[in-house]
Design a binder for these strands. Structure first.
Ligand SMILES: Nc1nc2c(ncn2[C@H]2C[C@H](O)[C@@H](COP(=O)(O)OP(=O)(O)OP(=O)(O)O)O2)c(=O)[nH]1
Ligand SMILES: [Mg+2]
Ligand SMILES: [Mg+2]
Ligand SMILES: [Zn+2]
Length: 574
DNA sequence: GCCGTTTTCGGCCCGACTGTTTTCAGTCG
């Protein structure tokens, strides 16, 4: 998607202006535009072609000047201001400010004083010990820069939410052993259930913060202490992940949790709203002059600002404040609303457990149904089943269903969408299924119009109930295939096909922004784990979180329905 | 550079920690 390239350019303009000590609000304007463009779900070129500059300016953070620059990029694939700024600095210079602890001021100083043009130059200078001779520099600063370079090299980027969850649980478990720790909560992107996580943010309330700080910085998984103060510490863990801890007073819990949950843009908007009301918000509370008027719990803070409570998943710094002002934040779906799981695999294709084992595990989760959706024949690498094998599995399901009480196994299949848009099984076979999932598993590298037509053709099949992992992305591994998501959603809406929210932490597909627009189009979802083993049935929570980030309620999701209503919904397309 | 149920001009979040400084700048959350 072109938006990513455009966002990157504006971010670079911001960085370059920072090096030149430009106006910091102008810099922030470029940063804001970059972030909003990056997270925008429609292609800017499409918007421009349809609605011109005015269309672009509808985007938050995009005004006349930036809209013109977007236009420039669409026409010429580059932006002059960006090119001109780049020319003022050596190639590779921007990488310097990516080093933790190095900001624009330090980078420029080293550039001017020591002619440092790149990270390689910097490494050499550090090795020779040249930095500590500069005014304002001593041994420690040089050492920190050296460590910063090492850290940058080791850092693995962003983590899957499941990985971060595991690390966080381990840290929290140990903090819970401290009797000095009052409340302990995960905060930051992990509490917002963002699809990837940069670091682990933890909030503790305590009357004696020093003891908590000491313990945290001495945990066995801590490799390095980046900073340690009275209310805040940062460490690097053995797995190279960063963890930030804030420790505040118990009566500051609400405002502290709100601050530390973010996101940053949401915080800024909250604080701006407070200013308009003659108030001030910080992690220490909501203040009117010197008087604290809220902060014990989050709800108190929202109340005092005239806002409905905003669940963490919605705190994205977008339109959630406006919606909360109007009292229109919906009651989001919860894990306990889920009554069944509509995508999983068994030993009949590439799953590790039998149908019976999957059913029993699901029943123990409190579900009243599952669908077994093994792969179709073309999926050779995933041991796709032939028609004969499929019906053998269905016989097995009939026998199990006869014995299971208050639980039903649905006969399903995850059928491949072949490159021409036809399906891997004929309608004669599909009509024997209770639920049919269609998915793209091969031929990813197709031009957008072909891929879009391919998928739409599949959605038009009256037996296809659910489009599985609709964009095909694998987080940190594989980009989505090139499909026009809007056209796909339109087809889903026209044909009464449901969209999957795949709960696997590597997929999370559809993702939040797409879920949101699909919901606005009236599309219903199936949140499914795509499990290949019983334990993965536990991934449902990640799918529900993604659904919540897309503003969905219980009514938007078909696997919250009791079995009779679900079956009716599934058969209604035929 | 963006934005507007008090504004089309004049605001733009607020605070912690470090290293270096003798009062604060830089970086980060
Ligand atoms: N008010 C305010 N709050 C901030 C700022 N930067 C960070 N925060 C708050 C909101 C963030 O969600 C929270 C944790 O900061 P992080 O840098 O860890 O960001 P976050 O966890 O949101 O994303 P991440 O996945 O770690 O990149 O601290 C800021 O500049 N101003
Ligand atoms: Mg974080
Ligand atoms: Mg953090
Ligand atoms: Zn699949």
């Amino acid at each position: 998607m072109q938006n990513k390239e455009i966002a990157k350019i504006f971010l670079e303009i911001a960085e370059l202006l920072e090096l030149k000590e430009g106006n910091r609000f102008k810099i922030r304007a470029y940063e804001n535009a970059a972030r909003n463009i990056e997270n925008f779900e429609q292609n800017l070129e499409g918007i421009y072609k349809k609605s011109g500059l005015k269309g672009l300016e509808e985007l938050e953070g995009v005004g006349e000047s930036i809209a013109h620059k977007i236009e420039e990029f669409i026409k010429y694939k580059k932006i002059k201001k960006h090119q001109d700024l780049l020319k003022e600095f050596p190639k590779g210079f921007l990488a310097l400010v990516d080093i933790p602890g190095m900001g624009p001021k330090t980078a420029m100083k080293l550039h001017k004083e020591l002619n440092i043009n790149s990270v390689t130059d910097l490494e050499k200078a550090v090795k020779k010990g040249l930095l500590k001779n500069l005014p304002g520099f001593k041994e420690k600063k040089q050492e920190n820069i050296k460590k910063g370079i090492e850290l940058k090299k080791k850092s693995r980027g962003r983590y899957l939410i499941s990985e971060a969850n595991e690390f966080a649980d381990s840290l929290i478990k140990q903090l819970k052993n401290l009797k000095e720790a009052d409340k302990i909560e995960v905060a930051g992107s992990l509490r917002r259930r963002q699809e990837t996580i940069g670091d682990i943010d933890i909030l503790v309330t305590a009357k004696k913060p020093e003891i908590v700080m000491d313990s945290f910085t001495q945990l066995p998984e801590v490799r390095r202490v980046l900073a340690k103060g009275e209310t805040k510490s940062s460490v690097i863990l053995n797995n190279n992940m960063q963890s930030d801890l804030r420790v505040l007073n118990p009566d500051e819990f609400g405002s502290a949790l709100h601050y530390f949950t973010g996101n940053k843009q949401h915080n800024i908007k909250i604080r701006e709203l407070a200013i308009k009301k003659g108030l001030k918000v910080s992690e220490y509370g909501l203040f009117k002059g010197d008087k604290k008027i809220a902060g014990k719990v989050e709800k108190e803070l929202f109340d005092a600002l005239g806002l409905q409570y905003i669940p963490p998943e919605l705190r994205q710094g977008l339109e959630e404040l406006e919606t909360a002002k109007e009292g229109k934040i919906p009651k989001l779906i919860e894990l306990s609303d889920i009554k069944g799981d509509l995508q999983m695999h068994s030993t009949h294709s590439d799953g590790k457990n039998t149908i019976k084992e999957m059913a029993e595990y699901a029943k123990n989760l409190g579900y009243s149904y599952i669908a077994i959706t093994d792969h179709s024949i073309s999926e050779r690498i995933a041991n796709g089943q032939s028609e004969k094998e499929l019906f053998k599995a269905f016989d097995e399901i009939d026998k199990l269903n006869a014995r299971l009480k208050e639980f039903k196994i649905l006969k399903g299949v995850e059928v491949d969408i072949l490159p021409d848009g036809s399906l891997d099984f004929s309608d004669d076979i599909l009509k024997e299924c209770d639920v049919v999932l269609a998915a793209v598993h091969s031929g990813f590298k197709m031009p957008q119009d072909k891929m879009t037509k391919r998928i739409i053709k599949a959605l038009q099949n009256k037996y296809v109930n659910i489009m599985a992992h609709p964009t095909g992305r694998l987080i940190n591994e594989r980009d989505p295939y090139d499909v026009d998501v809007h056209e796909m959603l339109k087809a889903a809406s026209d044909t009464g096909t449901f969209m999957e929210i795949n709960a696997h932490p590597k997929r999370l597909d559809l993702k939040d922004v797409h879920i949101k627009i699909a919901k606005e189009m009236g599309i219903l979802f199936a949140i499914s784990t795509d499990s290949h083993a019983t334990i993965s049935l536990e991934n449902m929570k990640y799918g529900v979180s993604m659904a919540r980030r897309g503003w969905t309620t219980k009514n938007d999701v078909i696997n919250t329905l009791p079995i009779d209503k679900l079956l009716k919904k599934l058969y209604s397309k035929r």
